[in-house]
Design a protein around this nucleic acid. Sequence first.
DNA 1: AAGTGGTCTAGACCACTGT
DNA 2: CAGTGGTCTAGACCACTTC
Lengths: 256, 256
Amino acid sequence: METAPEADRLNLFTSTPLEAIKGKPLYRVVEDHIRTLINTGRLVPGDLIPSESQLAKALGVSPGTVKKAITNLVWERLLFRHQGKGTYVSRIDFEKSLFRFFSYGDAEGRSIRIQKTATARRRQPGPKDICRRLGVAEGSELVYIERLGSIGDQPILVEYSWWPATVVPGLENENIHIPDFLYALVLDQYGVPILRAQETLTADAADAKTAKMIGIAEGTPVVVLKRTTYTTGDRIVEVRTTKGRADRFSYKTEIP
Amino acid sequence: METAPEADRLNLFTSTPLEAIKGKPLYRVVEDHIRTLINTGRLVPGDLIPSESQLAKALGVSPGTVKKAITNLVWERLLFRHQGKGTYVSRIDFEKSLFRFFSYGDAEGRSIRIQKTATARRRQPGPKDICRRLGVAEGSELVYIERLGSIGDQPILVEYSWWPATVVPGLENENIHIPDFLYALVLDQYGVPILRAQETLTADAADAKTAKMIGIAEGTPVVVLKRTTYTTGDRIVEVRTTKGRADRFSYKTEIP
DNA sequence: AAGTGGTCTAGACCACTGT
DNA sequence: CAGTGGTCTAGACCACTTC
């Protein structure tokens, strides 16, 4: 899945033969260099980066300094190492999504899959608040995708997803099959890699439409999860709101 | 806040002059050694640990190995370093608590303080489910503390907290002033350090009692936060349920 | 066999903290 | 000033992967 042949990939790191000191420690400079290559899309998730010794030579620093920089990025989960093979750029890990905590409250049953089926797809001028969250002009053409998530035959949540039409033209077309993991399609068909996302969790009373879709009474508590999804260059490509049955959601955390 | 004079503290690390190799890398052995000292209470939060060079000599390994072990524990936030002073055991960081995300949805106003006032305190045989969560025999004597949390004069959440009476004898006494941060009192008065906690977040419809206390209608959504609190030796010392207004709660996260 | 990351060592020099 | 952690280097040896 490398974007470039070996030589080119190494060239990404030779642009600045000697790193300038600006108060930053050397390993920090190396870190930031790699971070930038990822954020600008010159390295994409899954890519193999040059070996530690190659990097050390290319950047004119000692191997230990490169190792420290990479170790820090590994702790941040931006990279991962595989002994004997090399160091790779991490794929975005939606296992960390709060979404994942739907349907877990039950019998400690891990890895329950939520099936999603599209219930609406269309292209339309975006509502004001959605456009604002997307950072596009009000009234811009958006693609709207609505999906119902179920476990077995029990509906459990509804997803309301909005994309700028310029990013995913034609996605509203019914002929395109939408997989459960939408972002794989977006990468394949439109070459748009999803790099990171922000999620906000709250709870609310179910609105009439959502309540009907997941088979609960209006006003019953639902968990509300708002997601903002980013591609290269910190561009927002999706805003999504998921509303799910509160009785099928529980989020667990450790302190510290 | 060190528990022991300098010599004693260093002695904690000389018990095994040479570390045995059991498939584990050396730095891992050092890590586990420090972790054990903390989990057993021989090192407590706030303690200064011996310097890296002292540790290296005491354990018979190179300074680099000690540094790597400590660096890992710092990344895990179990220790923190202060250049020129030394390395300390971290205090438990309730800034990471989900509790902290109450009342933040508003105007991005950080550091809003939630005042807590005790509304009930008594000693009584524990209900079955509480005893089970605490891991004590059913019907054991427990201390029950109920507190109302408010911002200004607006009530926002209720806390229901249960402790084994053997751990905090007399805490039900009305003469003892309970500070907002209860665990400080527990450490001072009973010498029980709080080392870690687990929290689980869900949402539910408000029960009659809670609804009345925080001034909402019964059945309105509330956020439910269950906490299990641990002291040394992984002993559970408290189970707590906090119910708060859903419209004053929002939890934000980043992926990855 | 060659290349990768993983472990471990040894030492130099710097920046910060206390006295 | 002495002691602490912070940075950076250099090299040896090991374990894993691929050819």
